[in-house]
């Protein structure tokens, strides 16, 4: 369940767009095991690499931001998966032992 606050990442994303920035939204769409952020949690990223919100406890945000840069320039959505150790292609892992799937899309491109 998302709790709405005045200055959360979705409001910030809209403000960024108003300022002429290109913005990507990353969303946790699935979790397995223990995951620090629930399904539905957002991380928003602008073209300069500024970000707000989180999709994990800080473990994989760096990798998501890097991927978001590509999404911002190409406009193509991307599905990322993070897990423990190196089971996946990603070099970062979740220390909590869970797995998450993160969907990254560019704002404004349907």
């Amino acid at each position: 369940m998302q709790v709405t606050t005045q200055n959360d990442e979705l409001n910030i994303a809209e403000r960024w767009v108003g300022e002429g920035k290109t913005v990507a939204i990353a969303t946790v769409v699935e979790t397995w095991g223990s995951a620090p952020r629930p399904v539905g949690a957002h991380l928003v990223i602008d073209g300069d690499g500024n970000f707000e919100g989180s999709v994990s406890g800080g473990c994989v945000e760096g990798a998501v931001v890097a991927e978001a840069m590509d999404v911002i320039s190409t406009g193509k959505t991307r599905m990322l998966e993070f897990g423990v150790a190196d089971e996946t292609a990603w070099e970062v892992g979740l220390s909590c032992g869970g797995r998450i799937r993160v969907y990254v899309e560019r704002l404004g491109v349907a």
Partner: peptide, 9 residues
């Protein structure tokens, strides 16, 4: 996500 959807959301 479309910006229009985000705005309404």
């Amino acid at each position: 996500m479309d910006i229009e959807i985000l705005h309404k959301l």
